[in-house]
Design a protein around this nucleic acid. Structure first.
Lengths: 110, 110
DNA sequence: TATGGTAGTCAATTTTTTCTGACTTATTGC
DNA sequence: GCAATAAGTCAGAAAAAATTGACTACCATA
């Protein structure tokens, strides 16, 4: 079955899509932190020293848009919002893990 | 044996080092093309439509500096320069390959 | 000596990304 | 009703990355 839909907006489509989802000043760290458990906005800001609301907010939106994080509103006493890694997000983490190993090798040489 | 060298310039060092080596508008494509064989400057420019000398030059320098590409001067008739993937470069390519699979999945959904 | 190919560099500009600080909305506690 | 906490948004400024066009250096051939 051939694909009939004309996909005018499609990129050249190599690793671009995934790379876009992972690049940005704060996204890799956010994914790493998401691996350890659900994220909350203000906590996250404190976990990312030097970051700022706007950038973290945008990164979260991008990661949510890319289907890597899932946003859930928790209707509890204080009412808060949690970001958790999706299944797709989990498939990306081995990539980051491999990168960490390569990075560690690079850092060891400094 | 503990590491005695004070490493003031070291980054936080997760996947950052590798990510930096791979990010930029042209670097992933350059690595992909390097997989297929040695690269030459002007040819590369033509293989990367929309690119420009300066950016490609900088990308090559970064990739060389990161130890991903190796620059060799070929002293022949026209005299040219070849960039080939290093062993380290080859260890990075499975990462890009995995990303391609994930990207393809993402593109398939568009 | 001029022309062409290869591999760039450099300064200035444009575009993109990130940062800052002020402001907003929703809910709870006093 | 008033302040506080949580989770943001928005406009403008600053910083970083990419683009442009002109220029350089090397070698070879006509």
């Amino acid at each position: 079955m051939t694909n009939e839909t004309e996909d005018l907006t499609s990129p050249e489509c190599p690793a671009e899509e995934t790379l876009k989802a992972v690049t940005g000043k704060w996204k890799p760290m956010i994914i790493r932190l998401a691996l350890e458990g659900p994220l909350r906005f203000n906590t996250l800001l404190k976990q990312l020293p030097g970051s700022n609301k706007e950038s973290v907010s945008n990164a979260l939106k991008d990661l949510e848009g890319a289907g890597i994080l899932i946003k859930n509103v928790i209707r509890l006493k204080p009412l808060h919002i949690e970001y958790t890694l999706s299944e797709k997000g989990k498939t990306i983490t081995p990539i980051l893990k491999t990168m960490e190993v390569l990075s560690a090798q690079a850092c060891a040489k400094l």
